[in-house]
Amino acid sequence: MAEKTLQGALTFLGFAIAILGVLYFSFEFIPEVSEWTQLAALILLALAYAFIGVWIKETVVGGPFFEGDKLHWLRPAVVMYLLALGTGIAATIRFLTIPGVDRNLKVLVTIVVGVGIIVFVAMTMKRKESKE
């Protein structure tokens, strides 16, 4: 149990460090690279985190930190997914703050991409379920 708690604490520390790094890159690194590079890098980072989550889920270190129903969901893979979520949100904010892009286009793109992700995931899951 103590080992699990230590793993949980270290995982949370890793999560905090990584998300702070993403936020620093998103909002403090502006003068160094162009906004479009930042946006592309954030999207790629979000994908990388999500894929690490998929990979870690299948490994022995991917089990839940705590026994019981309430915190059973809290496992390393979920932490990676949350990291991907945070990075995705940072990418969206970065996109919305890019100067020179028409506001209407920003609204359209964010709505289409947002709804597109939801629909894509729902359809993928349905296909998986019907296969099973």
Partner: peptide, 10 residues
């Protein structure tokens, strides 16, 4: 595959 994709994206 997931690990490869993660490394490529990163």
């Amino acid at each position: 595959t997931a690990l490869t994709l993660a490394l490529v994206a990163g």
